[in-house]
Nucleic acid binder design. Structure first.
Length: 110
DNA sequence: CCACTGACGAGTG
DNA sequence: GCACTCGCCAGTG
């Protein structure tokens, strides 16, 4: 079921701004998109994307710094981790990203 | 309109 | 750090 609203475009716009080698959390993307507290919408919006999309969806992780398991298959989970590691993002023994090192900080980037 | 579900987050114990 | 609860919103039946 295709989705196309201004809210989703705002979300995609934010995700597209995440620089390579960094990650952002769902809640963070929601706030930057002007939708504070709507982390679930971010996840829902991304779930509608195709793997070939230009949006770097793999740079969006949950607040714990881990990859959220989506419904359907575990294939995409693996792809996300591999793409992140390929960009220089490392995971710890618990399979979580060190947010203190790789979390995208728009303010810090200015 | 109601109930259920889904890439989440923050608070509490 | 883990388990549980509640809050949030859109899509579907």
């Amino acid at each position: 079921m295709p989705i196309s609203t201004n809210k989703y475009r705002a979300i995609f716009a934010v995700v597209s701004r995440i620089p390579k080698g960094y990650v952002a959390t769902y809640g963070q993307v929601a706030r930057l998109a002007g939708l504070p507290g709507h982390a679930r919408l971010v996840g829902y919006a991304l779930s509608g994307l195709e793997n070939k999309s230009a949006v770097p969806w793999h740079r969006v992780v949950n607040a714990a710094g881990g990859i959220s398991a989506r419904s359907g298959g575990s294939l995409a989970d693996m792809v996300q981790r591999l793409r992140l590691e390929d960009e220089g993002v490392s995971f710890d023994e618990h399979g979580r990203i060190r947010l203190d090192r790789f979390l995208w900080r728009p303010e810090h980037a200015l």
